[in-house]
């Protein structure tokens, strides 16, 4: 049994969301029956943005509800998509007559549950659109991009979508801009040790003391290769090669960079990786417009990190620059 500071393994998602809602200091409301939080104030006629997925990836998703970010987040159990009735309740809570954009990671469970919720919402005359995030280059080849998983790149998509939703004329416009952001992002992760699901108390995968999994997914899904441990610079070279060649990112591009902790990796290691990332980007003549380093999208106590890049154009830059205020992302 892996040690965790919890009360009841069956109630971790619920208790964490309760604590998160309290930390918002009144800026959010907890819909306890739906295991969702929504902004206290959502003005009339606003196109709404609802994000969501399984719990266990904190601060994703509920940590990104706020000004110029998501209007609501609906949370499933650990690593399990929320159910359609939860999503529908959150949909009704954020809808202001202009419809709701569903934004979530591309996993079978999320896809099916959000699809069912969308059908139920349609029956209630609430228009919805769905965008599935698929930034993980390790999870499928480019020609099967619709099969890729959503990982830390979620953060950038939520940032752009949230800013866009604050002024978008309609759901179609929000969908267009959010799709562009999604399509300009590429990510890849690595893991050196597993996370665990509180209710089973067991690690989600096994890995040798001297091994590293390159391309590891957010729930312990296997990546592209399992190797012996290697220096940070060698590892970053491999990850960046996969990421840069995929979009591809080329000389003259301007990017936002996210170096994301998967749970148990130290800030020191992330910063060492960042040094090498910047060397590579400088060498490729790719300029970095902004950098985020820290825990944004985790997998319980998994040790490892991911790199995400979002290529900017003038429109995306405009939305990226807008201030944002939430528990886990503040931009002034």
């Amino acid at each position: 049994m892996i040690k965790k500071i919890i009360n009841n393994p069956k109630k971790v998602a619920e208790e964490a969301l309760h604590g998160l809602n309290l930390a918002y200091q009144g800026k959010t409301i907890l819909l306890s029956n739906a295991s969702a939080i929504v902004k206290t104030t959502i003005h009339d006629q606003k196109v709404a943005l609802l994000v969501g997925g399984g719990s266990g990836h904190e601060p994703l998703f509920a940590g990104f509800v706020g000004t110029n970010l998501a209007d609501g987040a609906v949370c499933g159990n650990v690593f399990a998509a929320p159910s359609p009735d939860q999503i529908l309740a959150a949909t009704q809570a954020v809808n202001r007559g202009k419809g709701v954009l569903y934004l979530y990671g591309n996993y079978a469970g999320d896809n099916m549950n959000f699809d069912i919720a969308a059908e139920l919402a349609t029956a209630m005359d609430i228009p919805t659109k769905s965008i599935r995030i698929w930034d993980d280059v390790a999870s499928a080849p480019l020609e099967k991009i619709e099969e890729r998983r959503g990982i830390a790149g979620d953060l950038f998509v939520i940032k752009i979508a949230g800013a866009s939703a604050s002024s978008a004329a309609n759901l179609e416009e929000l969908t267009r801009i959010t799709t562009k952001a999604r399509d300009n992002i590429r990510s890849m992760g690595v893991a050196v040790s597993p996370g665990s699901i509180p209710e089973t108390g067991e690690p989600t995968f096994e890995i040798g003391e001297d091994e590293i999994e390159i391309g590891m997914g957010l729930h312990g899904e296997p990546g592209v290769a399992r190797e012996k441990m290697m220096p940070a610079n060698v590892l970053v070279d491999v990850m960046m090669e996969h990421i840069l060649t995929d979009l591809p990112f080329v000389a003259g591009d301007e990017v936002c960079l996210l170096v994301n902790n998967l749970g148990a990796t130290t800030m020191m290691e992330l910063l060492i990786a960042n040094t090498r990332i910047r060397e590579i980007l400088a060498d490729k003549e790719i300029s970095v417009y902004d950098t985020l380093v820290g825990s944004y999208c985790t997998s319980q106590e998994m040790a490892g990190f991911s790199i995400s890049l979002m290529k900017l154009d003038n429109e995306l830059k405009k939305y990226y620059d807008m201030p944002a205020d939430s528990l886990a992302l503040i931009k002034r």
Binding site: N77, F79, A81, G109, M112, N113
Partner: peptide, 15 residues
Amino acid sequence: LLASIGGASGAIFGS
């Protein structure tokens, strides 16, 4: 089942 399982299993066995 749809409401209480969540995830892919809830959607599939509920359906």
